[in-house]
Every structure is written in structure tokens, then in C-alpha cells.
Simulated assay, not measured.
Amino acid sequence: MFNALIDFVREHYRSTDFIPLHAPVFSGNEREYVVDTIDSTFVSSVGAYVDRFERDMAAYTGAARAVATVNGTAALHIALKLADVESGDLVITQPLTFVATCNAIAYCGAEPVFVDVDRHTLGLSPQALDHWLSDHARVDGDGVCRTRADAKVIRACLPMHTFGHPADLDGLVEVCARWHVALVEDAAESLGSLYKGRHTGTIGRLGTLSFNGNKIITTGGGGMILTDETLGARAKHLTTTAKRPHPYEYLHDEVGYNYRLPNLNAALGCAQLEQLEAFVANKRELASRYAAYFSGSDLQFVTEPEGCRSNYWLNAVVCDSREQRDALLKSTNDAGVMTRPIWALMNRLPTYAHCRQGPLTQAQWLEARVVNLPSSVLPQ
């Protein structure tokens, strides 16, 4: 049934072998920088490449400060702590996301609240957010947003830029400001994506990135916190075991976290970042070819929101039904072309099934229909 699509993918990747969903590309200075790190012996948590990677990422995204971490989940954990999320608080997020988004909330001792997404962005809906808050929350005399039923503090809102497509940030900023809720962006998938000319992850109070092996650039594993200078300095302190500067003494002034990115990984990241714009251009060209291929078909290709530049980290189509989705997944995977469904909704997972939620009509509709297609950078 989907033989033509399988042929289309194989033609573009010039391969009759297994085609993965998203593979890394190492075509620049990766080997040179990694060997230089080995030769320097500074392969662990201190080194010139860590500092360089943070500076280069801040310059690329326009953030005042970028702080490297061992992975994206660690970055999210610290970002939420810096947004003052405490044990017993609530954090509003979307059910249509990877589990790390919710796990980071749980690490803080807080609990997610699931609010619906917009179908055209796949990200948290400002309208659904405002409706849930209007129905369930109030702002007290101290300017703190609390639930009406049990006075739980609603500390933050955590949207995720799904597959690299920016969520409706103007709407989210407005709603969060009106309800006195901190906006923290999970931009793990959207490095290289712009919302009205600004990089995702730089519009909320804090944002985070991921450099896992399947992301648009990789450090093998790694993450980054994007924020202002004050919170950035605090993030650096917390992620480096809360160690105070001293020539030789070990002085730690609070509970810190060993979330440091090794210099070896940062070296890889520096080389990858040098190629990022070329990767984005390549992936956007692939997306345009997918869009042309699916034009007029009964599969709807997911395109970037108006006014945005998406990195098209993972290309996706929306099927007519779950039955068509399942047939597409089986046909492609049986043929050695890797496709995947969108994530199971977080409120369906046993860990988060008890959490508060609003109506999730759009998230449920998308869960039953979305399929990701091979999205690696095309061979040159």
C-alpha cells in the first residue's frame, strides 16, 4: 500500500539498506576536536571546549547565557528549579511530549497538569491553558497563582516545541504573564528553529536544549540551559556541584548536582554547531520534498507554523485514522524504513495517570494519527 513512499525515501537516502529515523552526521571537525581533547588530557568536566560550546551556543541562539549539562533532562530539571518550582507545586505542560518533560517536573517533587495542544503547532495551546486556569485557578493577594480547590501553587508552564515546530509563544507569554506563571521552554527538539525571528528557548524565562544522538546536532549526550546572566550564573553553580571557586579547597555551599558536560562531548558539540545552519537548510529542503510528495494525498504533511522557521527535526504526516496509521507503520518498518508513531500521551502512563488534566481532544486526535518519517540530513 505504501510502496511508493518507501521508494521515495530510499531514493532520497540512496540506500537499499535499513534507513533509520534520524542518524547523526559527522562531516566537519569532529575528529580533530575530539583528538585535541584527548591530547590535552582534559576529557572530563573541565576544559576549553565546554566554555567554547557555551559561548558559541549563546551567540547562535541570542541567549544572554548558555550553560551546558550532561543531558537535556538535567537541563530541564535545573531550569525548573531556577523557576522556583518546589515540592508540592504544579507545572502545566502538554500530554503530547516525550516523557523527559514530565520526569523533570517529578524530579522537583512537583506534579504535571496536562492541558491540550494546538493541532497546527502540535504544541501547548494558549487558549486551552487560559481556559484551564480560568476554570481552576486564582491569583492570590501575594500574586501567586493557586488552584481554587486545594490552594496548590501553579508555579510554571512548560510547553514543548514538538518535532522542532515552535509553539504559539506570543499567546503563551501573554497567558502566563496574566496568571503570574513562569514560562519555561522545552526546546529539546528545536535547535535552529525560530519564532518570529527569535530562537526557541530564549522567549520564556528559561529554555533548554538537547544534544542526544538523535537530535539535529549531537554531543553523544548533552543539554543546555538558555537564560539571562543572573539565572545563568546560578545554573552554572548548581550544575557543577555547587562548588565555590578556590585554588585548591573543596567548598560546596548548598546541595548541587553533578550535571556537568564532559569536555570530550563539548568538543564534538563545537564541531557539530559549526555545521548547524547547513543541517537546517538540508532538512528544510527534505521537508519541502516531502510536502510536495504528499500534496493532494490523503496523508497530511505537518508544516511549520506561520511566521516561524522550523528545523524540521522529525518530519511527520497525519493519517486519516488509526487504522491507516498502523498500516503505514507496518508497511514501512517491514520494508526496513524506520517510522514511528507519536508518543503515547503522558496522562496514559501509569506514573502520571493520576495527574490533573483538562479536555485533551486535540492531543488524543493527533496521538491516533501522527507518524514520523525518516528525517536524517540527506547525503551530499
Rank of each mutant, 00 (worst) to 15 (best):
M57S: 07
I92Q: 07
R10W: 06
R65M: 07
A59Y: 11
R10M: 03
Y13I: 00
R31F: 12
D36V: 06
F53A: 15
G88A: 00
V34N: 00
K81E: 07
G88F: 01
C108S: 15
T16A: 04
D84R: 10
C108E: 05
K81A: 13
I19G: 07
M57Y: 04
L21H: 01
S45V: 02
V35E: 12
Y107K: 14
F18P: 09
H12G: 03
P20C: 09
L80F: 05
R52H: 04
S27I: 00
A4H: 14
A23E: 06
A75M: 12
T41V: 03
A79Q: 10
E32D: 10
F98A: 14
R52V: 00
H22P: 02
V91A: 10
E30F: 13
F26K: 15
S40F: 03
L82F: 11
A48R: 12
T101S: 14
E54F: 00
C108L: 11
H22A: 14
F42G: 08
A75L: 02
H22Q: 14
I78T: 08
V46A: 08
A75K: 12
R14M: 02
Q94R: 06
V70G: 05
Y13L: 01
I6Q: 08
A63F: 07
F8H: 10
C102K: 03
L96V: 08
I92C: 05
R10E: 08
Y49A: 06
T37D: 06
F26I: 02
G47A: 04
R10P: 06
D51L: 11
S15Q: 00
E32G: 00
T97P: 08
V91Q: 09
T101N: 14
T16P: 08
I19C: 10
D7C: 00
F2S: 06
D56V: 02
V25P: 05
A68R: 01
S44N: 11
L82K: 10
L21W: 00
I105F: 05
H77S: 05
D36N: 13
N29F: 04
V99S: 15
A104G: 09
T16R: 15
A79E: 04
R52Q: 09
A104V: 04
R55A: 13
A106W: 02
E86Y: 04
H12I: 01
A75W: 10
F98M: 13
S40H: 09
N3M: 03
F98R: 15
R10L: 04
E30N: 03
R55F: 03
A83Q: 05
A83D: 08
G47H: 08
V34E: 04
H77E: 03
V70M: 14
D56N: 15
F42C: 07
L5C: 02
